[in-house]
Computed example of a mutant assay.
Amino acid sequence: MKILRELIEAGDPLVQQAVEALRQYHAAQSAGAPAKDIERLRCNAESLFQAVNEYQRCSLGGLPSTRH
Results as ranks from 00 to 15, higher is better:
17 Q>R: 14
61 G>K: 06
35 A>T: 01
19 V>F: 03
59 S>T: 01
54 E>A: 10
45 A>K: 01
54 E>T: 09
21 A>E: 07
36 K>P: 00
56 Q>L: 13
26 H>K: 11
57 R>E: 08
4 L>A: 14
29 Q>V: 15
26 H>Q: 13
24 Q>M: 08
68 H>T: 09
48 L>Q: 07
13 P>V: 07
54 E>H: 08
54 E>S: 11
47 S>A: 15
8 I>E: 11
63 L>A: 13
33 A>S: 12
34 P>F: 04
3 I>P: 09
32 G>T: 05
14 L>W: 05
59 S>K: 02
53 N>L: 12
1 M>I: 07
9 E>N: 09
6 E>D: 15
50 Q>E: 11
63 L>Q: 14
15 V>Q: 05
31 A>H: 11
30 S>Q: 14
61 G>A: 03
5 R>N: 05
61 G>N: 05
66 T>H: 10
54 E>W: 07
63 L>Y: 10
7 L>T: 07
36 K>D: 11
46 E>W: 02
42 R>E: 12
60 L>Y: 02
64 P>K: 10
66 T>R: 14
38 I>G: 02
58 C>K: 10
13 P>A: 06
55 Y>S: 11
10 A>G: 03
48 L>I: 04
14 L>H: 02
1 M>Q: 09
68 H>D: 08
43 C>F: 06
64 P>Q: 03
13 P>D: 13
41 L>F: 01
1 M>T: 10
3 I>L: 15
50 Q>S: 05
3 I>F: 14
38 I>T: 03
47 S>M: 12
21 A>I: 09
63 L>C: 08
6 E>P: 07
25 Y>D: 01
